[in-house]
């Protein structure tokens, strides 16, 4: 029986991880773009990203595009594995093992 991940299970973080998982493994998304897609505030998104980063599930790369500071976010391999296990656990609850 797979275990649910308490870090990922929170709805905003669940949506965040799902969003990052839908990108290709080498794709990174900008903080502002992620905020617009998921319709979150800066503070809300930042707090949840920090939690996921502390768990090692995401990587945040700070860089400059032109003169603008940008943060690009991607899921780590640990994060991808944890999310997949979490989804399998949800499916076991819904459809049985």
């Amino acid at each position: 029986m797979k275990d649910l991940d308490p870090v990922i299970h929170q709805p905003v973080r669940l949506g965040l991880m799902a969003s990052l998982m839908s990108l290709a493994p080498k794709e990174k998304v900008d903080f502002t773009h992620l905020r617009e897609v998921l319709k979150l505030t800066d503070g809300n998104l930042g707090a949840h990203l920090l939690k996921l980063e502390e768990a090692g599930y995401i990587q945040v790369d700070k860089t400059f595009v032109g003169r603008k500071p940008k943060s690009f976010i991607s899921a780590t391999s640990k994060g991808r594995a944890a999310f997949e296990e979490h989804v399998e656990a949800l499916e076991e609850i819904l459809y049985g093992s």
Binding site: L4, H9, P11, L14, G15, L16, A18, S19, M21, S22, L23, V29, V37, L38, V87, L90, I93, L94
Partner: peptide, 21 residues
Amino acid sequence: EISRETAQESMRVIEQAVNRT
């Protein structure tokens, strides 16, 4: 442990986030 309804809601959140992205 979570209820079946909560699990369903979680799957809906995932689907919505994936579709939007």
